[in-house]
């Protein structure tokens, strides 16, 4: 530990560390928003100029800039337009309405969560099998790893259509795509995690004459927990992507993916951007939830704070 920056027990951390942490992030975010405005003005300008010359008006620069930022179907919506759309469709519209982004997010999130749970369960089961059956480790694991190089998302439309053909529609097909995308990271992470106990610890279990099951419960499972949370963090993000892409090919009527598709068909750019932001908010919430679960599980098991 260095001399500086390590306050003793009971000493409040200095304000500078907080500022050092947030100032750069806030600066970059401000720069992004500023760039966004500039881009919005620049990209919407050609259309507006066209429009104005057709109307035979020639406004001064400020009016023109104002016009570029208030188009109904802009090429690049300005941040405040997106924010306005978000506000309207999240807080002012009834939650059950088809216009509500909360409704669409809920549809996407429900298939995300179902797929995520199934994918995590499947991934853990496969990992347990691989750790305990050497033949599986040598024959199946290479395929699991190889499958990560393959663009799995490409099969999404096919899965939806096949399942629709045998009468499975609604939540489950989308959830299956999420399952598909999320079980790989869990399998790979859990195989690493279940194998992470040191030889010493495994030997200790042997001296206790512990059965395979007991060794699993008392040693392997707890040791794999950090790996588990690291991999489900990846898996939950992949699940969301799977659910959104799963809504694309079949013209689903609800969900963030369908909102994106409808917006792109009718050039409702503001709607598209609002749906994008809503999806991002979902992603952040999911990752935060995983982090909270990680901290809680760590506390419950008496982990030392990092």
């Amino acid at each position: 530990m260095g001399v500086t920056g390590n306050p003793g027990p009971g000493v409040a951390p200095p304000m500078t560390s907080l500022r050092a942490k947030f100032l750069p992030v806030l600066t970059i975010v401000a720069a992004i928003v500023a760039l966004w405005y500039v881009a919005a003005i620049g990209m919407n300008a050609p259309f507006q100029r066209d429009q104005n010359s057709r109307d035979g008006v020639s406004p001064d620069a400020w009016t023109f800039i104002g016009q570029t930022l208030t188009q109904p179907k802009p090429t690049m919506p300005a941040p405040h337009q997106v924010a306005e759309n978000l506000w309207k469709n999240i807080f002012t519209v009834k939650v059950t309405s088809k216009r509500s982004l909360v409704y669409h997010s809920a549809v996407t999130l429900s298939s995300t969560l179902l797929g995520f749970l199934m994918g995590t369960a499947l991934g853990v089961v496969i990992a347990i099998g691989i750790v305990h059956v050497p033949a599986l480790a040598k024959s199946f694991l290479p395929w699991v790893v190889a499958s990560q190089m393959v663009p799995m998302l490409a099969v999404a439309p096919m899965i939806i259509v096949i399942l629709a053909a045998i009468g499975v529609t609604g939540l489950l097909p989308k959830a299956l795509i999420s399952t598909y995308l999320s079980f790989f990271p869990v399998t790979v992470g859990m195989v690493k995690g279940l194998r992470s106990p040191e030889v010493m610890h495994l030997d200790l279990m042997r001296t206790y004459n512990a059965s395979k099951t007991k060794t699993f419960i008392k040693l392997r499972a707890p040791a794999s927990l950090p790996f588990f949370f690291a991999s489900i963090k990846v898996a939950v993000a992949a699940s969301l992507v799977g659910a959104i892409v799963g809504e694309l090919p079949t013209g689903a009527v609800a969900g963030i993916g369908s909102k994106l598709l409808a917006g792109s068909y009718y050039s409702q750019t503001i709607d598209v951007w609002a749906a994008l932001i809503a999806g991002s908010i979902c992603a952040v919430l999911l990752v935060l939830a995983v982090d909270v679960a990680r901290v809680l599980a760590g506390k419950a098991m008496g982990a030392r704070p990092a």
Binding site: L153, K233, A237, L240, V241, I244, V245, I256, G257, L260, L261, G263, S264, T269, V272, W273, A275, L276, G279, S280, A283, V284, L286, V287
Partner: peptide, 10 residues
């Protein structure tokens, strides 16, 4: 962690 793929329509 974001579903960046969503920018495709844009």
């Amino acid at each position: 962690a974001l579903p960046i793929i969503g920018i495709a329509p844009v």
